[in-house]
Simulated assay, not measured.
Amino acid sequence: MSNRFILAGGRIFDGARFLDDHVLVVAEGVIAGVLPLRGPLPDLPRQDAGGALVVPGFIDLQVNGGGGVLLNNEPTVEGIATILAAHARYGTTALLPTLITDRPDVRDRALAAGRLAQQRRLPGYLGLHLEGPHLSLARKGTHDPALIRPMTAEDLAALTAEVGSFGQALITIAPENVTTDQVRALREAGYVVSLGHTDVGAETVAAYVGAGASMVTHLFNAMSQMGNREPGVVGAALASGALSCGLIADGFHVDPVSMGIALRAKLGPGRIFLVTDAMSTIGTDEPGFDLNGRRVYRRDGRLTLADGTLAGADIDMLSCVRFAHQRLGLSLAEALNMASLYPAEAMGLRDRGQLIAGNTADFLLLDPSLALLSSWIGGTMVYGANESDAGAPA
């Protein structure tokens, strides 16, 4: 299929407005424009959207696995490719494969795999998210306590030496095990620094924001909660316009009432955006998997350790969007932006999240029930519900 075409016959959501009687013009993987159907149009082949809703592709900043692969268990470029392909089937056109707390050698293998993924320009690969091991034991969640440790000078040197080679760089840290000077060094090197798995209070959060932290990992989960005398990480995140916050909208990690309160309370310009925290189960019927030598069980939409501790999520991004729209009552535009524009803004990405001229041609076709018809990355269809998967990332 040509990478230069006009997509007509759909209703376009460009990230700000729903546009009828407009077309999407794609040229060499980039959006050349969103133009009125009745105006002058370039002489390009036409594709028919068949009345579908055309929306920006989803961006997921926390993806531990998919397609039967967990990055910790398969920190290879092949493992990353499998994860990308699995999530493209649910509308995610750009993602950060996420490494959960593990040994330094596993981290180094993941960084090497990220370098290869970047060099090979794997469709959908955005960069890496390193979630740990420099977290708080008090708020460890499913992270193996035996592997949690302070960030050393050697760790910092290894991390900063690699930044820029593997695409976008996001790291989740806890103030208990990382200093403000280390945060400054990470930020100056090019990492987006997120606070998570931490039990500190609001005053400490403010100090780390001052050092360069700009994000909070899975709001409400594995962090100090908001109280009447201590706002905790949750209160600090909602009250700080400098912080953007990921949110797992599966109905298990956070109660819908709490989600609604947070969305109404969040001070901007930082936004709350959707993340899946997805594990290897996405796109499979596997009953569970192993993480750091422990069994994770899949039951009734939940992933847990034997003691019931939630261990990531068994949800895809399109399902999170539906949850935000249908269960939380958000407008469709807002739900879509939480999966595209807002994570792009949180990572400082200026070429994604909206269907506007100059942006990468990552988009989806959805039917009226919000079922996925096709996913497109760089103007190429990588998944079609009624097509073979020959064009999917592999």
Results as ranks from 00 to 15, higher is better:
residue 251 G to F: 07
residue 234 V to Q: 04
residue 83 I to M: 04
residue 166 F to N: 06
residue 101 T to Q: 01
residue 146 A to W: 02
residue 90 Y to G: 06
residue 94 A to N: 12
residue 305 L to G: 10
residue 346 A to C: 01
residue 181 D to Y: 07
residue 378 G to K: 05
residue 218 H to W: 12
residue 266 K to M: 12
residue 57 G to K: 04
residue 22 H to E: 03
residue 157 A to S: 11
residue 59 I to C: 03
residue 54 V to E: 00
residue 333 A to W: 05
residue 151 M to D: 03
residue 159 L to H: 01
residue 228 N to S: 15
residue 199 D to Y: 10
residue 10 G to F: 01
residue 339 A to Y: 06
residue 168 Q to D: 14
residue 121 R to T: 14
residue 237 A to W: 08
residue 118 Q to R: 15
residue 277 D to C: 12
residue 14 D to T: 11
residue 138 A to D: 08
residue 377 I to V: 14
residue 142 T to H: 15
residue 119 Q to P: 01
residue 69 V to N: 04
residue 90 Y to I: 07
residue 26 V to W: 09
residue 309 T to G: 09
residue 51 G to M: 05
residue 266 K to G: 07
residue 197 H to Q: 12
residue 195 L to G: 04
residue 38 R to I: 13
residue 150 P to M: 05
residue 251 G to D: 02
residue 91 G to F: 01
residue 329 G to N: 07
residue 256 P to H: 10
residue 294 R to W: 04
residue 296 V to Q: 08
residue 214 S to H: 08
residue 47 Q to P: 03
residue 339 A to R: 10
residue 356 I to W: 02
residue 223 M to T: 15
residue 83 I to R: 09
residue 346 A to I: 02
residue 224 S to N: 06
residue 44 L to A: 02
residue 195 L to M: 06
residue 251 G to I: 10
residue 386 N to T: 13
residue 343 P to F: 07
residue 157 A to K: 11
residue 179 T to Y: 01
residue 279 M to H: 02
residue 365 L to Y: 05
residue 9 G to P: 12
residue 246 G to D: 12
residue 365 L to E: 09
residue 212 G to Y: 03
residue 133 P to I: 10
residue 155 D to I: 05
residue 324 A to V: 02
residue 10 G to T: 00
residue 179 T to I: 00
residue 260 G to T: 08
residue 304 T to N: 11
residue 231 P to S: 10
residue 303 L to M: 10
residue 207 A to P: 08
residue 148 I to C: 07
residue 33 G to L: 00
residue 75 P to G: 03
residue 345 E to N: 15
residue 11 R to G: 05
residue 8 A to T: 14
residue 37 L to E: 14
residue 366 L to W: 00
residue 316 D to S: 14
residue 186 L to A: 00
residue 280 S to A: 15
residue 138 A to H: 12
residue 204 T to H: 09
residue 58 F to E: 04
residue 4 R to W: 02
residue 337 N to F: 09
residue 366 L to F: 01
residue 124 G to W: 00
residue 358 G to M: 11
residue 161 A to E: 14
residue 97 P to W: 12
residue 18 F to D: 14
residue 39 G to A: 11
residue 268 G to E: 03
residue 295 R to V: 10
residue 178 V to S: 11
residue 157 A to C: 13
residue 157 A to I: 09
residue 141 G to V: 04
residue 216 V to I: 15
residue 157 A to M: 09
residue 234 V to E: 02
residue 268 G to K: 08
residue 126 L to Q: 06
residue 48 D to L: 01
residue 332 L to T: 00
residue 175 P to L: 09
residue 149 R to M: 06
residue 93 T to A: 00
residue 372 L to N: 09
residue 314 D to R: 10
residue 377 I to E: 00
residue 50 G to M: 05
residue 250 D to L: 06
residue 170 L to E: 11
residue 167 G to W: 11
residue 345 E to Y: 12
residue 279 M to S: 00
residue 209 V to I: 13
residue 105 D to K: 15
residue 71 L to A: 06
residue 1 M to E: 13
residue 141 G to C: 08
residue 182 Q to A: 02
residue 358 G to L: 08
residue 121 R to E: 14
residue 99 L to A: 05
residue 391 G to K: 00
residue 224 S to V: 05
residue 158 A to W: 01
residue 269 P to N: 01
